[in-house]
């Protein structure tokens, strides 16, 4: 796709279905073949890209997100993350992949209760076995990046929603993952906090981080370089809004949050 670099994400003929026999539900199916069987979803995401996956409720976007985030395994198909096939990994190896390659940002923030912002951000580093001093330094750097350095000692219940989500973003990027995966990151935020968080994500992408955002808001999708729409578990449109190598459209247009 871009400059010969291998894509960060390559999914081939991926399907996900629940239930058995007549009750089977295809959450992710892709186009149907001539015999009516699902062919599966194909999707490549290049390094440095900023992709918004859109779709209404039940379109399969959450399923796709769970598979991309190695939280769930596809029923069939191949998934290569950063060149490695994650389909054959065991639980421990998947934990390692989540820790090293993926940074999660959730709609409901999902911070660990009763834990200070600094400790939250240190958490993935702790699981990665980084030494305490180094951990602290990197966590503070990440918090500074999201503008919360002075809130390092605050616990989730002492932070506003926007601040909590910024801590979550700091936590997601502290391990320098191959991909930042955000599931409705602004779904629970007011418009001002939304702009703040999206501004931070835009900034991260401008510095080269690959970002995948799951959303149903056009407002959010406008920030992405590429918009993929899902309907009933299949990709129905794939629109590029800006080149992979350039800055994200919001920054390019000078709309700085």
């Amino acid at each position: 796709m871009s400059g010969g670099k291998p894509p960060v994400i390559q999914i081939r003929r991926v399907t996900k279905s629940y239930g058995h026999g007549d009750a089977v539900v295809h959450a992710l199916r892709g186009p149907l073949g001539p015999d009516g069987a699902p062919l599966g979803v194909d999707l490549d995401i290049a390094e440095g890209d900023y992709v918004a996956v859109m779709g209404s409720s039940g379109s399969g976007k959450s399923t796709l997100m769970n598979i991309l985030g190695c939280l769930d395994v596809p029923t069939a198909g191949r998934y290569l993350l950063d060149g490695a096939d994650v389909g054959h990994l065991d639980e421990g190896q998947l934990a390692l992949v989540r820790n090293r390659k993926i940074g999660f940002v959730f709609q409901s923030f999902n911070l660990v209760p009763r834990t200070t912002a600094l400790a939250q951000v240190e958490l993935p580093l702790a699981y990665a076995g980084v030494k305490a001093g180094e951990r602290r330094r990197r966590a503070l750097a990440a918090l500074t990046l999201v503008g919360l350095a002075e809130r390092a000692g605050h616990k989730p219940n002492q932070l506003s929603g926007g601040q909590q989500q910024r801590v979550a973003v700091a936590r997601a990027l502290v391990t320098a993952p191959a991909m930042l995966l955000a599931d409705e990151p602004t779904g629970n935020l007011d418009s001002r906090s939304t702009e703040e968080v999206l501004g931070i994500i835009d900034g991260l992408n401008a510095r080269g981080r690959t970002v995948v955002v799951i959303t149903h808001e056009d407002e959010v999708a406008r920030h992405a370089k590429r918009v993929v729409r899902l309907v009933d578990g299949a990709i129905v449109s794939d629109v590029r809004q800006a080149p992979v190598d350039g800055p994200p459209p919001a920054l390019a247009a000078g709309v700085v949050a």
Partner: peptide
């Protein structure tokens, strides 16, 4: 839920 978060952040089973 907290366990889920920790696992998403890459906490191995043993931890």
């Amino acid at each position: 839920r907290e366990i889920g978060i920790r696992k998403a952040l890459g906490a191995p089973r043993a931890v």
